[in-house]
């Protein structure tokens, strides 16, 4: 039998488990798109989890969550990722937070690397605003991987960082500031 490689270090992929019936709520993006999501998926976001908890504590019916700083397209990506990871143990993401070597599972790698850089940026920013640790971890590692093996000049091109002399002449501020 072939030996398993680093299986202990890697997070286990999400596996569907028999659980309570899904509690579906509506989520509205900043540009008015209304999407539907399982509450368990939304709980991966600390920000949304606090809001949901507030509703539950007050026994108010949760019909629609408003996410004011994420547009519909990006919110759809966020919810797709959360849906995939709703069964994950949050402790795994927390444990990986400060690690240098983060292993990205194959589904996440495919999900993140297929995105154009602009969308990846929006997704990571949205994950930051919604405080989704796992998505931040994988998103940041994907960006770091895209810089792998690149020289300074190639990195300047990838990250859109201007040359020092390309600073706007009308401003007193410089890129170096």
């Amino acid at each position: 039998m072939a030996p398993k490689k680093n299986s202990a270090k890697r997070p286990q992929p999400s596996t569907p488990k028999p659980s309570a019936p899904a509690r579906i709520v509506k989520v509205q993006s900043s540009d008015g798109h209304i999407l539907q999501a399982d509450v368990r998926a939304l709980l991966l976001s600390s920000t949304l989890a606090a809001t949901i908890k507030g509703y539950d504590d007050e026994n108010k019916p949760l019909e629609k969550l408003e996410v004011n700083n994420v547009v519909g397209f990006t919110l759809k990506l966020v919810l797709e990722w959360c849906e995939k990871h709703k069964e994950d143990d949050p402790a795994i993401a927390q444990a990986e937070k400060d690690k240098k070597n983060i292993f990205i599972p194959s589904w996440d790698r495919h999900f993140l690397t297929k995105l154009p850089m602009g969308n990846l940026f929006d997704l990571i920013t949205a994950a930051y605003h919604l405080d989704i640790t796992g998505l931040i971890n994988y998103g940041c590692k994907t960006v770091a991987n895209s810089a792998k093996g690149k020289s300074t000049e190639e990195m300047r091109e990838l990250f859109g960082i201007p040359e020092p002399w390309e600073q706007p002449s009308t401003s007193t501020a410089t890129w170096d500031d």
Partner: peptide, 30 residues
């Protein structure tokens, strides 16, 4: 990954640090 620009400097500083931390030393120095 599509060959486009990732607007790194527009990220919040925390996220920039998160990305840099996960890079290899060679890329960090670059």
């Amino acid at each position: 990954m599509n060959g486009q620009i990732f607007p790194f400097l527009r990220l919040p500083t925390d996220l920039c640090s998160e990305i840099l931390k996960t890079m290899d030393y060679q890329e960090i120095i670059s």
